[in-house]
Simulated assay, not measured.
Amino acid sequence: MAREPLSVVVTTFNNVDTLGACLDSVRFADEIVVLDSGSTDGTRELASAKGARVHEQPFAGYSAQKQAAIDLATHRWVLLLDSDEALPAAAADAVARALDTPAVAGFVLLRREWVFWRWQPRRARLNHYVRLFDRSRARMSGHEVHESVVVDGPVRRLDAVLDHYGERDIAGRVDKANRYSSLQVRDRRTRRPSFLKARMVVYPTVAFLRYYLWRGHWRGGWAGFVAARVHAFYAFLKYAKLYERERSGGQRDIVGGAERGDE
Rank of each mutant, 00 (worst) to 15 (best):
I254L: 08
S182G: 15
R245C: 05
R3Q: 08
D24A: 02
V26Q: 00
R192C: 11
G20Q: 05
W222Q: 09
R131T: 09
V155F: 06
G220S: 09
G172R: 05
A47M: 02
L81P: 00
V104N: 03
A47S: 04
Q184K: 15
K66L: 10
G51S: 07
H128F: 14
A223D: 06
V33C: 02
G250N: 08
V150L: 08
R3V: 10
P88T: 08
L19P: 01
P121L: 09
P58D: 07
A258P: 03
V149H: 01
A207T: 13
A47Y: 06
D253F: 15
V104Q: 04
T205R: 14
E56M: 11
A64Q: 13
L79T: 05
I254P: 00
D152A: 09
S7A: 11
T11M: 01
G261N: 07
D36G: 01
K176N: 10
A49D: 14
A64R: 10
V255M: 08
R252K: 15
D17F: 00
S194C: 13
R210Q: 13
L162R: 03
H217S: 05
L79G: 04
A92C: 12
L99H: 07
G224W: 00
V185D: 04
L6T: 03
A21H: 01
A103Y: 11
D93N: 13
F208K: 05
R44I: 04
L213V: 15
L237Q: 06
S136M: 09
Q184F: 14
E246Y: 13
G61I: 04
D187L: 08
A29T: 09
F13M: 06
R53D: 07
V174C: 05
R189S: 13
A207M: 10
F133I: 11
V149P: 01
V230W: 00
A29H: 01
D82R: 02
F208V: 09
F13W: 11
R123K: 15
N15S: 01
L6Q: 06
R215Y: 13
V150R: 02
V202Q: 12
R131D: 08
M1H: 11
Y165E: 03
G42V: 04
E263L: 12
S39V: 03
S48F: 02
A69H: 02
R53M: 10
Y180M: 11
R186I: 12
T101K: 13
E113C: 05
V185L: 06
L23F: 02
A227L: 09
Y212P: 00
D262S: 12
T190S: 14
Y129P: 05
H164N: 09
P193M: 06
E244L: 14
N14R: 05
S48L: 11
E85Y: 06
R168N: 06
P5W: 08
A68C: 10
S37K: 06
A177H: 04
V9L: 02
R252P: 14
L81M: 11
F59A: 04
G51I: 09
W114I: 10
S148C: 13
L6S: 01
T11R: 01
L132T: 00
R125P: 07
